[in-house]
Design a binder for these strands. Structure first.
Lengths: 130, 130
DNA sequence: GCTCTAATTGAAAGATTTTTTCATCTGCAA
DNA sequence: TTGCAGATGAAAAAATCTTTCAATTAGAGC
């Protein structure tokens, strides 16, 4: 129940669960790594300003992850760790779960860096474009 | 001689080595992962439109890499493979060379994806912010 | 339930960023 | 040199994002 958990976190942090916020949350849940336009289209009753503010809020709470895969920001629910395969030709995006990053081999750059998260995007050509 | 190599590639692809393009190239070479403002400040004699167009051109040629580390696009010369440590508090960016990604363990998602490149960003808190 | 209040919303205006247009200019091949 | 396809840039337009502020509302407390 991803929806309930997200609402719970929202409330738990002292924020009101307004219809607008729930609508944006549902919009995000209804797709994967969507751009602003897509999200807005799924909740046209919510004002633009509120969508921006809500995405900022969700991102700040760690509820939502903001992706930069080119062509503007995209958003997805921040739950399971996964990465993206981005096709440089058609722009399609696929996900994969198996994380090929070995964080233990991270060098210590200029002292101690506290690692909190990482993002990996793999670029190339998808099977359809070949 | 990163500069010469880049100019060679530019010419080799049939593009003119105009003073503006060389100025933008020098600007990129003068720093690391710079934003548009920084680059523009280093070549104020070049018109804004041309900077945009030139960065697009360089990126398309694979001469320059466009980074999305939050807070707008950044650009750097696409030469040696490296990744970034981004401090979520102060926004500082450090680089590291040792690549902790094992591409062999990439799963085949929906058939054959031809991997051309990948980008890894590690987020957290830098030593200064702790 | 009902009331009250601080949090939230959204229309409009403003700021910023990026793109398009098109007349003019220029790098460079011949 | 010369010619011209490619390149530039000022201005305008378009797209994107933020601020403002009056009106609304979720939800705590009674």
């Amino acid at each position: 129940m991803r929806y309930e958990a997200a609402v719970g976190k929202l409330r738990g942090c002292g924020y009101k669960a307004t219809p607008q916020r729930l609508a944006v949350l549902s919009a995000i849940l209804a797709g994967r790594h969507q751009g602003l336009e897509e999200i807005r289209a799924r909740c046209p009753e919510v004002g633009m300003v509120t969508v921006y503010r809500t995405l900022d809020l969700f991102t700040g709470l760690g509820l939502v992850r903001r992706l930069d895969l080119g062509h503007g920001p995209r958003y997805e629910l921040a739950e399971d760790h996964h990465h993206h395969l981005v096709c440089e030709d058609c722009g399609s995006i696929k996900e994969f779960e198996r994380c090929p990053v070995d964080l233990r081999s991270l060098p210590r750059v200029g002292g101690d860096f506290e690692v909190r998260a990482h993002s990996l995007e793999v670029y190339g050509r998808c099977s359809d474009c070949r």
